[in-house]
Amino acid sequence: MDSQIVHFAGLSDRDRKAASPLPKLGAGDRLELHVRHEGGKEQTLSIPPSAAAAVEALLAHMLRGERVAVLAEEQELSPTEVAAILGISRPLVVIRMARGDLPFRYVGKHRRALNLRKTTPTVEGFINALQQNGLKRFATMLRQNINRLDR
């Protein structure tokens, strides 16, 4: 089975010390990615403004020593993947699913966390539900990321 997590990564201490955060991008600013291939060929890629905000948030979290997960929005996740993202154990994810705290459906005998966009009318409603169900730290992190992306 293919993982629904597109990428899950963190930076080493050495890489965090060597890297610097992106400056705040203003209206009209552009983000470009400069790639130098092993053979010496160079390439510059333009990053669209909406993706630039995501790159800025991603790098900021990684520079703080946090691991980040990049997910496809419309994907359903296994309990193991949900546990990795939330930083809790798989058995706790299964318990929260059984209590109704995390929406899921069965695919055969396997649980899949439902796409939260389809099961929660608003992002703010989802964040509030997380907070009420004992995931206050995760809810705060989501709220901060959303505020950063909205700027």
Results as ranks from 00 to 15, higher is better:
residue 56 E to A: 13
residue 76 E to L: 02
residue 58 L to G: 06
residue 25 L to P: 03
residue 107 V to A: 11
residue 1 M to N: 13
residue 80 T to Q: 15
residue 39 G to Q: 08
residue 1 M to K: 12
residue 70 V to L: 10
residue 96 R to C: 01
residue 14 R to T: 14
residue 49 P to H: 05
residue 86 L to K: 07
residue 16 R to N: 09
residue 56 E to Q: 11
residue 149 L to S: 05
residue 14 R to W: 11
residue 10 G to W: 06
residue 93 V to Q: 01
residue 31 L to T: 03
residue 53 A to F: 02
residue 37 H to A: 09
residue 9 A to G: 09
residue 59 L to T: 07
residue 88 I to R: 04
residue 89 S to C: 06
residue 114 L to Y: 01
residue 73 E to C: 03
residue 50 S to F: 06
residue 28 G to W: 09
residue 17 K to G: 09
residue 27 A to L: 12
residue 44 T to R: 11
residue 53 A to R: 11
residue 89 S to R: 10
residue 97 M to F: 04
residue 113 A to I: 01
residue 96 R to K: 15
residue 37 H to N: 08
residue 128 N to D: 14
residue 121 P to Q: 04
residue 93 V to M: 02
residue 105 R to F: 01
residue 15 D to V: 11
residue 57 A to P: 01
residue 4 Q to C: 07
residue 121 P to N: 02
residue 104 F to Q: 04
residue 78 S to G: 01
residue 85 I to Q: 04
residue 138 F to M: 07
residue 112 R to T: 01
residue 39 G to W: 06
residue 61 H to A: 14
residue 122 T to E: 03
residue 3 S to M: 08
residue 37 H to F: 12
residue 12 S to V: 08
residue 141 M to K: 15
residue 149 L to W: 07
residue 53 A to V: 06
residue 97 M to P: 03
residue 28 G to K: 12
residue 98 A to G: 10
residue 126 F to T: 01
residue 11 L to E: 04
residue 149 L to F: 07
residue 73 E to V: 00
residue 143 R to S: 14
residue 55 V to Q: 03
residue 75 Q to S: 08
residue 67 R to A: 15
residue 70 V to D: 00
residue 131 Q to A: 14
residue 105 R to W: 00
residue 85 I to C: 12
residue 138 F to G: 05
residue 32 E to T: 11
residue 141 M to N: 11
residue 95 I to Y: 14
residue 125 G to R: 01
residue 19 A to R: 10
residue 113 A to P: 00
residue 41 K to E: 13
residue 130 L to V: 04
residue 61 H to K: 13
residue 74 E to H: 01
residue 146 I to S: 12
residue 80 T to G: 14
residue 124 E to A: 15
residue 123 V to Q: 06
residue 99 R to I: 00
residue 46 S to T: 10
residue 50 S to A: 10
residue 31 L to R: 00
residue 32 E to F: 06
residue 64 R to N: 13
residue 56 E to W: 09
residue 12 S to L: 08
residue 81 E to K: 06
residue 142 L to N: 12
residue 86 L to M: 14
residue 42 E to V: 04
residue 86 L to R: 14
residue 44 T to C: 07
residue 99 R to N: 05
residue 19 A to N: 12
residue 30 R to I: 08
residue 116 L to D: 00
residue 14 R to I: 13
residue 17 K to R: 12
residue 141 M to S: 15
residue 35 V to P: 00
residue 135 L to E: 01
